[in-house]
Design a binder for these strands. Structure first.
Length: 423
RNA sequence: GGAGAGGUGGCUGAGUGGUCGAUAGCGGCGCUUUGCUAAAGCGUUGUACGUGUAAAAGCGUACCGGGGGUUCGAAUCCCCCCCUCUCCGCCA
C-alpha cells in the first residue's frame, strides 16, 4: 500500500509509476474517493465533538432536572445523525481502502523501462553455459529418476505435484537445506523455524489476501493458510511492532516447506521438479533502515548468488523491467540457474526491495533517533534458495556418463558422499 | 476436550455508566543538586488519522484483547470471537 499523503501531494509520481509498470489504474478516481472520505470524516468528527461537549455538560447537571431532560432530547437527534453519517463513512472508507490497494508500489529510478519479460536486463552471467551438450537430458528423463523422486506414488497419496523423495532423493534435499541454512547463518542471518500455517491477518499483511487466496491451501474448519513461502510468517514476526532503530538491520532466514496451488500452469514448465505444489525453500528476509535499503538489496542478492557459486552452477542475474517487476516491488532481481538438460534458465531466487509497501500494511516501524518519531522500515526478501530447481540443475548439469550425479565439493560434507546414484 | 480465572498505557496495577487518554508506582527522558557514581527533588512521558504549517505549535477525532449491541453518554452493561493462566483429561 502507498502512503495516502504521497498520492494527495504528488499524484503525478503515482501516475508515472503506474505507467512504468504498464498497469491501468484510474488515479483520479482514487483521488476523488479520498476527497469524499476526508469530507465525510470531518463531518462525523465534528458531530462526535458535539457529543463529547454535551457529555461534559450533562455530567454537571442533576439527573432528571429539566435542563438534563432537554439535553437528552437534543442529543438523541445528534446521536441518530452520528449513527447515519458514521455508516456512510464506513462505506466510503472501505471504498477508499480498496482504491488505495489498487495502487502499485513505485518502481525505483534504476528499474529499466520495458513491458515484457524479454525486456528484463541481464545484469550479469556467471559460469560457462555450454549450450551444446548433446548428452544432457531433462532430469525427468534420467534413468531411475522416478525411484528417487516418486511422482506417481505422490499423486496416488496426495495429488499431482506432491512427490515422494526417496533414498538419495531425500538425502540430497536434506543436504541442500542444511547447506543453505549453514551458509546463510554465516552471512549473518538468524535462523528461524516459523509456523507453516498462518491466519488471515498475516496473509493480508503480506498481500496474499484478499486477491490471491486461490494460490493458497486453506484449512477447515480453522481457516488457516498453508504458507506459500516463509516470507509470510517471517515478515509477520514484527507485525504491529516498533523495532529499536539501533537493532536495524535485522537479518533472518527460515526454512519451510512451501505450498502453492498454482492453478492454470501446464506444459514443460511443470514437468518434473520445475513446479510443485509442495517444495522446500530457505527464505532470506531483512528489515532495514530506509537509507540503506538498496545497498542491503544488493548484499542480499550477493548472499544468494554465493550459494550458486559454491554449488558451481552457472547462473545469471536479471534486473526486472517495469512491466515485469510485480505490483508490490520497487526493484527486483531474479536469479536463474542454467538447466543443461532443458536448455533453459530456471528461476531459483527472486530478490526484492518492497520499501514501505509491505511494512505499511503490516505496520512494522522503527523509532527514529533523530526525530523521535516512528517510521516505517523497508523490507527486503529473496530465496536463499529454493530446492527443487537447484536440484534439477544439479542433476542435469552434473550427470556423468555412468548415470551417477557428481556433487559439488561444497555439498559433499552435507550429503556424505560424492555421488548421487539412481540405482 | 471439560471446569474456572483473567486480558487496561513500555512494565506493574487502580478504575463497574458521565468531567477518563484513563489514579498510583516502576521504567524512560529533561532539569536541579553532585568531584564521579549513587540517591533525592521537580518536571515530562503513547499510537493513529484528519486539520493546520515552509516545518512546527495548535485544534479535532479515535484507541482500555478484537468485533457487534444497549444508551443522550461505555474501559465500565449485554452478545460473539481471539488469546493467556490454573486444574482435570488426552497426547508426540
Amino acid at each position: 500500500m502507498l502512503d495516502p499523503k504521497l498520492l494527495r501531494e504528488s499524484p503525478d509520481l503515482v501516475r508515472a509509476a503506474i505507467a512504468k509498470k504498464h498497469l491501468e489504474v484510474d488515479v483520479d478516481a482514487v483521488l476523488a474517493i479520498d476527497t469524499a472520505w476526508r469530507a465525510q470524516l470531518q463531518e462525523v468528527e465534528s458531530l462526535r465533538s458535539k457529543q463529547k461537549a454535551a457529555n461534559t455538560e450533562m455530567a454537571a447537571l442533576p439527573k432528571g432536572s429539566p435542563e438534563f431532560v432537554a439535553k437528552v432530547a437534543e442529543m438523541k437527534a445528534v446521536s441518530a445523525q452520528v449513527k447515519e453519517r458514521d455508516a456512510q463513512l464506513k462505506e466510503i472508507e472501505e471504498k477508499f481502502k480498496q482504491a488505495m490497494l489498487s495502487l502499485p508500489n513505485l518502481p525505483h529510478a534504476s528499474v529499466p523501462e520495458g513491458r515484457t519479460p524479454e525486456e528484463n536486463v541481464v545484469h550479469l552471467t556467471h559460469g560457462a553455459v555450454d549450450q551444446a551438450r548433446p548428452d544432457a537430458k531433462p532430469h525427468w528423463e534420467i534413468p531411475g529418476f522416478e525411484k528417487l523422486f516418486d511422482f506417481s506414488r505422490g499423486a496416488k497419496v496426495t495429488g499431482a505435484g506432491f512427490p515422494f523423495y526417496v533414498g538419495d532423493g531425500a538425502r540430497i534435499v536434506r543436504a541442500l537445506l542444511h547447506f543453505f541454512l549453514e551458509e546463510d547463518g554465516k552471512a549473518g542471518y538468524t535462523e528461524v523455524n516459523p509456523p507453516i500455517f498462518v491466519n488471515a491477518a498475516s496473509a493480508i499483511a503480506t498481500g496474499q489476501l484478499p486477491d490471491k487466496e486461490g494460490q493458497m491451501y486453506e484449512t477447515t474448519p480453522d481457516h488457516l493458510y498453508a504458507v506459500p513461502t516463509a516470507e509470510v510468517p517471517l515478515t509477520n514476526f514484527f507485525r504491529d511492532e516498533i523495532i529499536e532503530e539501533s537493532a536495524l538491520p535485522v537479518y533472518r532466514c527460515a526454512y519451510t516447506p512451501c505450498f502453492r496451488r498454482e492453478a492454470g500452469s501446464y506444459g514443460k514448465d511443470v514437468r518434473g521438479l520445475n513446479r510443485l505444489h509442495q517444495f522446500d525453500k530457505v527464505e532470506l528476509l531483512k528489515w532495514v533502515h530506509p537509507a540503506t535499503s538498496y545497498d542491503e538489496l544488493d548484499k542480499l542478492r550477493l548472499d544468494a548468488e554465493r550459494l550458486l557459486q559454491k554449488l558451481e552452477l552457472p547462473y545469471r542475474v536479471l534486473l526486472m523491467c517495469g512491466g515485469d517487476l510485480g505490483f508490490a516491488q520497487s526493484k527486483k532481481y531474479d536469479l536463474e540457474v542454467w538447466s543443461a538438460g532443458q536448455k533453459r534458465w530456471l528461476e531459483v531466487s527472486s530478490c526484492s526491495n518492497f520499501e514501505t509497501f509491505q511494512s505499511r500494511r503490516a505496520q512494522i516501524r522503527y523509532r527514529s533517533k533523530e526525530s523521535g518519531k516512528t517510521e516505517l522500515v523497508h523490507t527486503i526478501n529473496g530465496s536463499g534458495l529454493a530446492v527443487p530447481r537447484v536440484l534439477a540443475a544439479l542433476l542435469e548439469n552434473n550427470l556423468q556418463p555412468d548415470g551417477r550425479v557428481k556433487l559439488p565439493a561444497a555439498l559433499v560434507p552435507y550429503f556424505g558422499k560424492e555421488y548421487l546414484t539412481f540405482a
